[in-house]
Structures are given as structure tokens and as C-alpha cells.
Design a protein around this nucleic acid. Structure first.
Lengths: 343, 343
DNA sequence: CACGGGCCGCGAATCGATTCGACGACCGCC
DNA sequence: GGCGGTCGTCGAATCGATTCGCGGCCCGTG
């Protein structure tokens, strides 16, 4: 963006027209004769001018054609989790198709650093990702700027939310397990609170999880009439965490293992195999998300499938609507049970 | 970005100072007394003003604090491949740490649509990703705008390139296999040409691959003195492709299978297991990239490890340097052999 | 031939800041 | 007490476009 040299003024001069006419030739917003347009475009080509400076246009228009994705401090985590990647994927693809750019923003670690958002947050709308326990400062800044926000999997407090029916999904899964006659179910959950940790959870005495996803998924199981015989908190959605959880949970002699994500469930499955148990004969395994796990080979995990691509798309569409001055409502999408070979 | 209402002018008026002084209070670039600054900041807080409008600042400064990542038409692909995700991860994290935002750009499918780049490409530098056979128009636009470019894994034709020593990596891998006494090596490659396909490759008659990565990796194997007994082209870096390739390649009775990526190699491994072959006793398997494959369980894949995080970081650093007017040189990073349990 | 209406091109204001030279006040020193 | 030097503040120009109202010209019509 350093001074590219030729500006629209130069082009106008070269074409022998006024600045305003030259602008019209590019934007097409207004009456202009073909002859004049061609003249301007020819002059532009001559000078190597490739269209109006986006920054200047944004300033004047008051819109930048960019939607920000606010990832909080969790950039790295977001890129390691297949589900958030699928969200991102859906968002970026949809935005691109609508002619919008995507600005990835993370709140810097150091609190007092100039927030990137404040420095170059030229966006027409923002998508707040779930993992990001977005800082109050960030939210305040966005709000003050008048940037409309869409929340991914959140509460909808800061704007319309797009989320999956987590509870319903887990309920379906739980009912399925009960139908199969499983009474002793052990769960490997996602983190319960802001500070993630790995370790056992005593369900009888535990306070309700403050992390909404964990709370909702557990609620779903319970609504299906399942009270887990053992629970293990995984600090993240990782196969390794699932393996570790599985090793511990199997001590409770469960007939079914439920992972709060497919990666965790895959870990549970590997742990069960390692322990010499046959799946599903000796122990059933189920997950949540519906991510692709081609490496399980012939085995297909029973899981509650979130339509991740749709969620991303819906979030992007809502963001675009808001960016263009419209209004959008929260959407909750259904989660579907996909029966595999593990239950 | 729709008119947020309060501007720096309002703040200045409320604080009883001039516009220029108010600007100084925020930018800190220039002499200003503490008292005045506090007065301005207080007035700003009062009015709910959260810092200067980034677009206006960008226009004036001539820099936007944003680095674009150009993904060509391959957005979706980029989000499905763990290696490019790791690149992205490294880039985004580094840029964020330096106070830069990251703009994800994809050339739209439809050729004649207004290129997002042209419409809102407010960036100080761009990183061209490898997969993206970036359209000439995009390149021309960037060049004309004077946006400096860094190439990821490219040829360095459009700017400094950051790449891995692919050939050396494959050579190390090949030498390792030869030391182990493997003479019959079969390979599952990445796509050879712009148009990816899945299918057998007749190495004897095949033209050199036009895809640089494929060509360089194959060269590496050959430099190690390995002339594959069979080759299969995979259309993408996917486990499924590797499985399919494995099924076919095993017909040639190889003693070792080399996948051009770890995902492909993982597929080869699964295919070998499926065929009832023990790894590495009956057939050895090796890959390239060094991605995390926790689901292989105890098995660790022998592979040539690219320092993906470093590559991302270096690309981002080069981009920042260029953005700030400096110059950067191409960097080629070493690939390391990591011995696993599969050879 | 005169008048009304389109069509097109032009001027000028504006978006919201940054930045630099100029200027005023205040201090200290001789 | 006067003068030079700082420190801080202010004005004004500028970044590169968009947009809207105005007006000239040409054509058709009465």
C-alpha cells in the first residue's frame, strides 16, 4: 500500500476527463457513455493502474468489504482443532464467494499491547469464535465502532448466534446407547471451566460446568437418562487426551465410552483396543462432531454430526447481512445421529 | 465501519484541544504533555471513542497493518491439508505477535468477477501460498499496487521465497531406505501437473512433473539412487488416496512404500496392514512432512520432517520486513529425517 | 423555431485521520 | 531586564477516492 504512484487523478488527466468521471468508469455507479469508459480504462491500462485504492474507497464508502474473525488468544488452538477449521473453512469460502475478504484477528497475549483490532480493524462485521473468551476490551471496541457481531456457538449476547443443538445431539446419542442396553456409560468431556485441565471429574459433587458446550452436552446425556459411572475431563479435543482418558475410564468397567468430540472418542477407541477390548463387542464407543477419521480404517465411529460447513456458511451469511445493514436472527442447527460400527 | 458517530474531531472539541493534538494523544508520535494527553483520553472515554478509525489512518499513513495471504482458488484445499494449516498457523501467530492482521484472500472461481483483491486488498505485503497457482491477474494487480510478495514454497520469481529443502529430505529418506537394503521401492506421489488426478504413473515414459514439489521430491529419491519400481499419483494429500495407492502399489511387491506426504504414507500403511502385511517386517513405509498422527498408536512413521512452524514464521517475518520497507532474501530450510518404527 | 427532457460529464464537498512547519509561552542565563 | 532556546500546541495540507447536484448539449416534439 505504499504510494503506488499512479492514482485515479493521474488516470483522469491522462484520459482527459474529470476525476469524478474516471471514478464512475471504475465503479459503474452512475451514467457514463461506453466511449468515455473505454477511454478511461485505456488510459488506466496505459499507466498500469489496476483499480481504485481500496483504502481510500473504504474510507469514503464507509465499508471495507472485510469481515473479521475474532479468535481471541486461541489462534493456535483454533488451527489445531478440525471442527474450528471446518467452521473457518465454511466461513472463508462463503465470504469469498460473496466478495468479502476475511481478516483473522487474535487478541495479543500481552494485555496492554495495542490491540490489533483497534489498530487495523477495518471490518464491516465480525464473527466471534466460540473458543475465544474474547476480552472485554475487544468487545467494547467492536461495539463502540459499531461493528455488528455474529457469534459462533455462543450465547447470542453480543449478536445473533449460530450454534448446533448440542444437547439434542447428545440426547440422541444417549438414547441410542440406552436402546442398545448400555447402563454403565463413562464419559470423556471437554474442559469444564475457562482454565482447561486433564483429570477425573466427580460428577456427584461437581458444580455445573461453566463452559457452555460441556454443560449442554452433559445435559443431553442426562436427558437421555444416562448418569455416567465415571467422567474424565480432557483439556482439549485431542486424540492423545482421549487415549489418556480411556485408560482411566476403563477402570470403571463401562459398557460404553462417550467422547465429547470425535478426536477424544477416537482416543477412547484406541485405548480400548490397547486394553485388549473389542469394539463394540466388549465396549461401545461414541463421539460428537462428525469429523472425518479415515485412519480408523473400516471402523466408522458412531457420532452426533454437527453440520460444520453449514454452521460456517450461516455465520458468514449472517455477517454479510449485518455488514450490509440488514438484521439477522440467531440460528440453531440440528445435530444428527450417525450410526457407525462402534456401538 | 458504518459511521460510528464520534470522530477524533469530536474528541478534540470535547477536550478543548486541536485535532492535531488529539491525534498526538493517541498515536504518541510527537511531543505532548501528560496533562493534555489525559484530558484527551478522558474526553474520548466520555464519548465512547475507542481510538482512531483504522481506515482513515491507513489512508493517511499509506500502510494498513495487514498482510494478505493469497490462497488462489484453493481455499478449501488449504483448510483440509494439515501442512498448509500449520503454515497458516505459523504465519498468523507471527503476524499477530508483530501487531499485524491477516487477510485471507482467495481468487474467486468465476474469472470475471471483481477480484476480492482489487476491491479490498488493503495490505502492506502478501504471502503467496504454494498450492495457489495464483492467477496472472492477481499477480499483476499486486505488482501494480506495489504490494511486496513472499512466496511459500515457490520459485521466488515474484519475491523472496521460503521453502523446505524437499529434494534433500527425500534424498535422506531414500538413503535411509537403501541402507536398510530396500531395492524395490514404490512411491505414491502428489499430483504431477496442474490438473490433479489419481492413477498409475509410468516413470519410464513420464515427462518431468510440472508441479515443483512433486518434481523435487522425486529428484531427491533418485539422487539417493532409488528408481521406484512402481508409482501412483495421488490427487491430494489424503489418507484415502494413500489407501487407494497402497492397494495398487502392493501389486508390484515392493519392500518399501514411500508416500509424498505423511497422510498418503499413513494410507499406505493402512493398506499394507489390510493386505495382511506387517510393517516394517514385510514392507517398510515412509512419509514426508512430519505431521502429528497420534492415531497411529504406538507406531511412529518414519518421515522427512519439514519445520512447518518455522516456515510459517519465516514467511511472516519476511512479509513484515517487506511491509516496512526493508528487503528480504529467499530462505530454504532444512528437512530432517525422523526415524520411526515403520522402516 | 423554441422549449422540455435525457444523458453525461464536471466541481466540489467529504470520509477521518496524520504530519510538519510555524508560533506562542515560559524558562534560564547573562 | 532582555534574549535565545525548548517544549507544546495549532493550522493547514494531504492521503485517494466517492457521490451528488448542477449544467451543457443534443434531440424530439409542438
Amino acid at each position: 500500500m505504499r504510494h503506488s504512484g499512479t492514482t485515479l487523478t493521474d488516470v483522469a488527466r491522462a484520459a482527459g476527463v474529470s476525476l469524478s468521471t474516471a471514478s464512475l468508469a471504475f465503479s459503474g455507479a452512475g451514467p457514463i457513455s461506453d466511449a468515455t469508459r473505454d477511454k478511461v480504462l485505456a488510459a488506466a491500462a496505459e499507466l498500469g493502474y489496476h483499480g481504485p485504492n481500496p483504502v481510500a474507497a473504504s474510507l469514503r464508502r464507509g465499508r471495507s468489504g472485510v469481515v473479521g474473525i475474532v479468535m481471541g488468544a486461541a489462534v493456535r488452538r483454533a488451527f489445531r482443532d478440525p471442527v474450528s477449521i471446518q467452521f473457518l473453512d465454511g466461513i472463508v469460502a462463503t465470504l469469498a464467494a460473496q466478495g468479502y475478504g476475511t481478516l483473522l484477528l487474535s487478541t495479543p497475549e500481552a494485555q496492554e499491547l495495542p490491540d490489533a483490532l483497534l489498530t487495523h480493524g477495518a471490518m464491516d462485521a465480525a464473527v466471534l469464535t466460540a473458543g475465544a473468551l474474547t476480552s472485554r476490551r475487544t468487545l467494547a471496541a467492536l461495539r463502540a465502532r459499531g461493528v455488528p457481531m455474529v457469534q459462533l456457538g455462543g450465547t447470542g449476547r453480543h449478536g445473533p448466534a449460530v450454534r448446533a443443538r448440542d444437547k439434542q445431539g447428545m440426547k440422541l446419542l444417549g438414547e441410542h446407547l440406552r436402546e442398545r442396553g448400555h447402563e454403565r456409560v463413562a464419559v470423556a468431556t471437554l474442559p469444564w471451566h475457562v482454565e482447561p485441565r486433564s483429570g477425573p471429574v466427580d460428577l456427584a459433587s461437581a458444580r455445573r460446568a461453566t463452559s457452555p458446550i460441556t454443560a449442554r452436552r452433559l445435559d443431553g446425556l442426562r436427558e437421555a437418562g444416562i448418569e455416567p459411572v465415571a467422567a474424565w475431563e480432557c483439556s482439549a479435543s485431542l486424540v492423545e487426551e482421549g487415549i489418556a482418558a480411556g485408560k482411566e475410564l476403563l477402570a470403571a468397567r463401562p459398557t460404553a465410552l462417550v467422547g465429547f468430540t470425535d478426536l477424544i472418542a477416537a482416543g477412547l477407541l484406541l485405548a480400548a483396543r490397547d486394553a485388549g477390548l473389542a469394539v463394540p463387542a466388549d465396549v461401545a464407543v461414541a463421539g460428537f462432531d462428525g469429523v472425518d477419521l479415515p485412519w480408523l480404517g473400516e471402523v466408522r465411529l458412531t457420532t452426533a454430526v454437527q453440520p460444520t460447513a453449514d454452521i460456517g456458511r450461516l455465520a458468514a451469511e449472517a455477517a454479510v447481512t449485518l455488514a450490509e445493514g440488514g438484521t439477522a436472527r440467531s440460528v440453531t442447527v440440528d445435530v444428527e445421529l450417525r450410526l457407525g460400527t462402534t456401538t
